[in-house]
């Protein structure tokens, strides 16, 4: 609690999987999400490694069993040619945009640090990503695609949406997760249904953890 952010000790939204909070279509959808193929189908191995390196900086995660395979979701999205429902005129279709951006980012990395993106350290990766966000990268590999637009529309959208669609992320922020047929009863300030995450108030971490094991 040093940073003052809410904590939900021992809360795992997947504990609710077999409760009345989840219906069959939800179980199917989440099961498929958890069983995502971790190997790339659209990106090459090399591109995929670079994508993973980008994901590590955009949504830093601790190594462990709960690690969200973000890059795999992004690759899957490209394979299925999923779309948000619009594309900015300055951007090519998603697949082409990612191929081009990864190549350009490597070119920028080599130019700035004499090593491809996957081989530079976190601080340098952040430098490159920040410059991409600000539109300061100019390598010809970008072609007519604006790096800042790509960053806003793909780096931030594709990667972040993949992470926050994952139960691990839900548990982290104390989100109740799927809710059908059972919704919620207690809606007022400071009110919690027994099947919601319990926030640990200072000195009551054990109490919250106990509640969270019984959602």
């Amino acid at each position: 609690m040093t940073d003052g952010l809410p904590r939900y000790p021992d809360y795992d939204v997947l504990r609710k999987r077999n409760t009345v909070s989840w219906n069959d279509p939800t179980r199917t959808a989440i099961d498929r999400r958890l069983a995502v193929d971790r190997d790339p189908h659209t990106l090459t191995e090399g591109e995929f490694a670079t994508l993973q390196a980008i994901c590590d900086r955009v949504v830093p995660q601790e190594q462990g069993p709960d690690l969200v395979p973000i890059a795999a979701y992004v690759d899957q999205e490209l394979t299925l040619d999923l779309s948000l429902g619009y594309r900015y005129a300055g951007l090519p279709p998603a697949k082409e945009a990612w191929h081009r951006a990864i190549a350009a980012l490597d070119a920028e990395s080599v130019k700035a640090f004499d090593a491809p993106f996957v081989a530079v350290d976190a601080a340098r990766r952040d430098t490159l990503l920040t410059r991409m966000q600000k539109g300061e990268l100019k390598d010809p590999a970008w072609g007519d695609m604006a790096p800042d637009l790509f960053f806003k529309q793909h780096v931030l959208v594709d990667i972040v949406a993949a992470y926050y669609a994952h139960p691990t992320a839900w548990s982290r922020i104390g989100y109740g997760g799927p809710a059908s047929p059972r919704g919620y009863v207690r809606m007022g300030f400071g009110m919690r249904d027994p099947w919601e995450a319990a926030e640990a108030h200072p000195g009551e971490e054990a109490k919250a953890a106990r509640k969270n094991r019984n959602v």
């Binding site: 199917t28 429902g85 594309r87």
Partner: peptide, 21 residues
């Protein structure tokens, strides 16, 4: 047919190709 899930339920949206400028 409906899951309690933002991502899966994008099945409801018009996501055919469109260009905005």
């Amino acid at each position: 047919d409906f899951a309690s899930d933002e991502t899966a339920q994008s099945q409801l949206f018009w996501t055919d190709r469109r260009v905005t400028d």
